[in-house]
Design a protein around this nucleic acid. Structure first.
Lengths: 128, 128
DNA sequence: TCTTTAATAAAATTATATATCAATAAATAG
DNA sequence: CTATTTATTGATATATAATTTTATTAAAGA
């Protein structure tokens, strides 16, 4: 008796898949609580971080605002629009190289990294 | 009469220089308030972000904990120890290339980025 | 069905950062 | 040097993101 499948956990996972576009915990809460009004925000947070640790989701730490969660598990980066705040996928760029080089030059081991790009999204470009 | 030089601003700038190792706003506040007990935390935050915008300091947005501030203005990245939480300098890696490639593949313009590395620092390696 | 205990709901708490606003003091003019 | 202007400050309140706490609930195995 280790892990249990709860309705709440399933609803949270479904919401991240349905929302697709890198929702924040709050956005997930909004969607889930529409169908299941009594769900607690703490439960949403717990399940999001828990399932990220299990590898069912990806936890994206945004340097500015709230963290986001991604249903897509293949390696890639993210780009945030500096105008509307929307987050899109960005290409993954030679990550092994980055980590190796940083390890060599800093003396740190087990090196990983986060990259977040910023820019103006196509939509905000045309509305300017 | 535009910008004013205040004791508080000078104390904050000095503290970031003296602390050197990428202090958080809180660490700066601790040092400054030792010499100037009445200083407000809001003033420390205001001066840190203000001087970062003026280019006198660099504001490092950390994806996890509190933001940090760097007296060193030459371009480089940072690496955070996953054990002790300390932050060290990391090499800058082909940034123009990253931004260009991300812009091309996403359709975003005016692309910049943040990179933060994570790893185990030399000190935590030997204490393991 | 019963038992165990992982997971939940609700509220309080922590951490980081910003906003508000009356009071203060730095820069300049006279 | 003094007066004036207003940027800056201090104190507090507020905002946002996320975690902790604790009694209760319910999932899974016996």
């Amino acid at each position: 008796m280790e892990k249990r499948n709860t309705i709440q956990k399933q609803l949270v996972l479904d919401a991240v898949h349905k929302l697709a576009n890198h929702p924040t915990a709050d956005a997930v809460y909004d969607m889930v609580s529409a169908a299941h009004p009594n769900i607690s925000k703490a439960t949403v947070y717990r399940n999001l971080t828990g399932m990220s640790e299990e590898g069912k989701l990806r936890h994206i730490h945004m340097p500015n605002g709230a963290d986001r969660f991604d249903h897509c598990l293949t390696p890639h980066n993210h780009i945030e629009c500096t105008i509307c705040g929307g987050v899109a996928d960005a290409p993954q760029i030679t990550p092994e190289l980055l980590d190796e080089q940083a390890a060599k030059e800093t003396g740190f081991t087990e090196v990983t990294h986060d990259v977040v790009f910023y820019g103006v999204c196509p939509n905000c470009q045309s509305n300017a």
